[in-house]
Design a protein around this nucleic acid. Sequence first.
DNA 1: CACCTAACCTAACATCGATAAGTTTACGGT
DNA 2: ACCGTAAACTTATCGATGTTAGGTTAGGTG
Lengths: 226, 226
Amino acid sequence: MVNKKGTRAVNPGKRTRLPAAERRAQILAVARDLFVTQGFEQASMRRIADAAGITPTAIYDHFADKEALLTAIAADFFDGLVAAMTMPPDAATDPLGLLRQLMINYVRYGLAHPNEYRLVFMTSLSRFVPTLGHRGLPCSGVVPEEVAQKTVKAMQSFGILQTGIERLVAAGLLRGDDPEGFADSVWAMGHGIVSLIITKGDSNFTPIDRWIDTSIGILMEGMRPR
Amino acid sequence: MVNKKGTRAVNPGKRTRLPAAERRAQILAVARDLFVTQGFEQASMRRIADAAGITPTAIYDHFADKEALLTAIAADFFDGLVAAMTMPPDAATDPLGLLRQLMINYVRYGLAHPNEYRLVFMTSLSRFVPTLGHRGLPCSGVVPEEVAQKTVKAMQSFGILQTGIERLVAAGLLRGDDPEGFADSVWAMGHGIVSLIITKGDSNFTPIDRWIDTSIGILMEGMRPR
DNA sequence: CACCTAACCTAACATCGATAAGTTTACGGT
DNA sequence: ACCGTAAACTTATCGATGTTAGGTTAGGTG
């Protein structure tokens, strides 16, 4: 019960040991919970370890660092986002309603996973600091592999929106001015709502449901053929 | 040169002393620079102090904590934003054009100051963490005084947009459905564009000028009386 | 000159993410 | 049944962070 250095185990002999896969999954579950309830910064490795019933260093046997925890969670986030934006085939009968539902699902899913959303869509990772371009705009330097992969994933969900809009344009249900610009603008609107609420809270804005309704109304009306 | 405890001053006798106002301004300038070039987290109090030629604790004679530095910087940013969104009186002759110009100026100012914009509109302060509401949506808890003040400042620039829209509604140039929701949505669109470009770079999107044009077109058309 | 306060300092605390190196448990081969 | 080995987990520690308590020094006033 007492080791070579004379120190004492926290819970001698009673500690549960788990196979790697299970422990990994458990750590991930605990970390997700703490990230969501306390935020990324507040949820320290020590607190995560405590909640998992192990010591902080044990986490590093399963994940490279704290960021890897969030990255793993983000992967799940993207899968969920794509799933939330993938419509059943019978939805094609009401194409405009589909676009409407697409945006609703995007916003709701984003607000349901604020910390993952922030990581994925609102932060360039800490060691990937923006440098200023010639017009004061950030220009990407060397992009780490994982960030690049993440971008690909993001483009997948964006692609769903884009093809949806192109289909509506082809069907004559939307103006054909600038389909690409339409998709970007719809995304900007959805992203604007989500990110504003995430950073500022929802108390200072139009109630969410009405906000979504109004914004979608503007978009639909604004993109309709005249 | 050697004090009671036997320790030694870093730069004995040569340290420059400044009156509070000057030192405060200098710290602020240095902090802004470091926040902008390295990000909020990476720019530590020790590094800021080094750059200012003082010790970290001296900062606390001028600012309550690290967050107060950011708050002060944000105030300047907001002043500039309000200025950029304050229109000459003769612009009232073309109210719709004014709204258009309002959004253009917002986006351009945001893109011209990407790092301050990120600090102010895309970073929620660490101890003001969103807690989850009954539907998994973030709801604001107790809001600290300074955050509230910052919100007030933000609301000032937002107020310009809001009253502008209200005036257009009153003049019958926009629908009267939900003026508040209109203002929020216009802001969301502008913020979405700015924040997406800031985090993802401008290379993956519709060229900025066209994007702004298209989005404003959608907004105008979408809010017009039918 | 003495003194007082503004301006600044040293030393330290608690906590953070992360690493090195040690210890214990479980299990497979013999 | 034994035993070795690798997986699972630990202790101890590092350097860095924001922040505080309490001391020191310089510049101006009486």
